[in-house]
Design a protein around this nucleic acid. Structure first.
Lengths: 338, 338
DNA sequence: CTGAAAGCGCTAACAT
DNA sequence: ATGTTAGCGCTTTCAG
């Protein structure tokens, strides 16, 4: 394998052109403050020599690293793919590199990363944070931070309004005649699952329909089987799942047990992940603006709030119900079920 | 928003303990070369003060950055999710950070990234490279490089053996009675698509079956519709798709046009991405060890070949055919087709 | 085993 | 408009 070649430095360029290193630096970074003729010569020399700035060295003096980090609890979860995409796209658009960290659903890994990373990045987008409000507030003192799907007083965040969306979904089921539904909860640590459940509970009461909470479950397809069995056991006619992964996993289990969706049971997912439109049956689900969330979060992170300007600490992005084929009228009899 | 706090440096620790900075550095990096008692005091002080090394500064002197980059042509493609996962997991296991770059299917972005990145990372894993052999060889001279799904003489690589897999798939179709099949090609720039086609062509001739090449197509679900129409037009009874994305997109189109899979037409995908098992019908596909590929590539990248030890430049990972429900016996009549 | 000192490549005052 | 001079935080000689 070839040797790792010595990199071309600013000093090489300076020597070639016959100027000071600081002049080269300026020519490349503040093109206005240098004579056009000299700047052209410097730029040309840099190109000829194949000069590329060393971000490490640059960040050491300037404090800026031109890179941001995105922390997600589980890179395995397709939901986060959209977030990664959106964040990556916006980071690139704003000239930043993108470090991806999987915190493995662990508060400890999250805390450690938050402690180690500040020197390496200009800011952090933290999705589905596991830490406490106090810990997050402390972290935000060390590095610019934007939370995704989590709100903490005083911290910047962008959340998808799945609570409002869940109500839409509930309305949808109620309008189809359902009077007894279940909410299949996500992880106990999930802020959005808790928030959604509270909204559902309140509204169900107002609407006079039964809404039971089942779970918590891990947000995975594998857990869908157990969730499905629990739903069946509760004898409801409709189920709102914490996310599509769980719902799709459950769909398979329902099929195995001979429970027809939506004839015997209506199923609503959440997120509208890749696959929700081509699973069997195509899933009625809460469509969330995942990519947009990633973009907005990065934008928020990178925007330096001008002094005096009102800082919008939290943004809530709307969701909408996408009706496909997993929901239908309430069954008139409990056909095919014990 | 809180101010960005001054970070604790090695000098702070040194002052607290009353030693030189170099001693602190050694205590933290070469624990053997310092007295146990002093090392303990230093480590304790570092913990108390909340010291975390600044990777930028460290890399400036040491040359090592403790981070690697993964370059993928399109972060949107679920196929790469597995790769990202595997790479991220192995990088973490080996104590490295992970920078993700989407080269947007563009040779220029790829070249630029390869030029800019070397100072920031200890090595690069480059998936589905678009550049020429010469350009890649040049890049490998500047930074440790491992190619994924691309082979270049003299460079390290890990490829999934989809050519062999495609032959298995062809055998499968032939054994079901198919005599006229199509290969739906991926992008013209795809090394693995070309390689697969050559293998298929050769074997089809030997087996005495017809194998036409259709395409190229972009490797997306959206392109699946056009691919499906082309397949129908060629009046084959079986089709091998470049990837699952294309195949799943085609499945939907076939359904729209009233063509039954597998009754009228057998479909084989490639990759076994998320969703291939729950689409309609579940897809017979070439299962590729994507995550393993990511792990192996990172391992290869980070392993310093001992002098004298034989360097294994290229690794080929096996694939296998996963038979689900999109393939079946050849139709006896051209039912339902013009 | 520990300390002093010299940079790594770059930017940001401060001069001129 | 350009050059000079300090460092950024850390590792690494080189001396004790």
């Amino acid at each position: 394998m070839p040797q790792r070649r010595e990199a071309v430095t600013i000093a090489d360029v300076a020597r070639t052109v016959g100027v000071a290193t600081s002049t080269v630096s300026r020519a490349l970074n503040q093109p206005g403050r240098i004579s056009d003729e000299l700047r052209d010569r410097i730029v040309a020399a840099a190109a000829t020599l194949g000069y590329h700035p060393n971000p490490q060295a640059r960040s050491l003096t300037s404090g800026r690293t031109q890179s941001i980090a995105l922390l997600v609890p589980d890179i395995t979860n397709p939901f986060f793919f959209g977030l990664i995409r959106g964040a990556q796209a916006q980071a690139r658009a704003r000239g930043h590199r993108h470090v991806l960290v999987d915190t493995e659903e662990s508060a400890e890994v999250e805390a450690l990363t938050l402690a180690e990373l500040p020197a390496s990045v200009d800011g952090i987008v933290l999705a589905a944070a596991r830490l406490t409000d106090a810990e997050l507030t402390a972290a935000a003192g060390r590095v610019p931070l934007v939370l995704v799907n989590r709100e903490v007083p005083g911290l910047r965040s962008v959340v998808m309004d799945t609570a409002a969306g869940a109500l839409q979904a509930l309305d949808h089921l109620v309008s189809l005649g359902h009077r007894s539904v279940a909410y299949v909860a996500g992880p106990a640590t999930s802020w959005s699952s808790r928030k959604r459940w509270r909204a559902l509970q309140r509204t169900a009461r107002r609407l006079g329909v039964d809404c039971v909470r089942i779970g918590p479950f891990p947000p995975t397809m594998a857990a869908g089987a157990a969730a499905a069995d629990a739903v069946v056991h509760h004898r409801v006619t409709g189920a709102l799942f914490f996310n599509d992964l769980l719902a799709i996993g459950a769909l398979r289990r329902f099929a195995e047990r001979g429970i027809r969706v939506p004839d015997d049971l209506s199923v609503v997912g959440c997120d509208d992940i890749f696959g929700a439109d081509f699973c069997r049956p195509p899933l009625t689900t809460l469509t969330t603006p995942v990519e947009q969330t990633g973009r907005v979060a990065v934008d928020m992170l990178l925007s330096t709030p001008t002094v005096g300007e009102p800082v919008r600490a939290g943004q809530t992005l709307p969701t909408h119900l996408t009706i496909r084929e997993s929901t239908g009228p309430v069954p008139t009899r409990r056909a095919g079920r014990p």
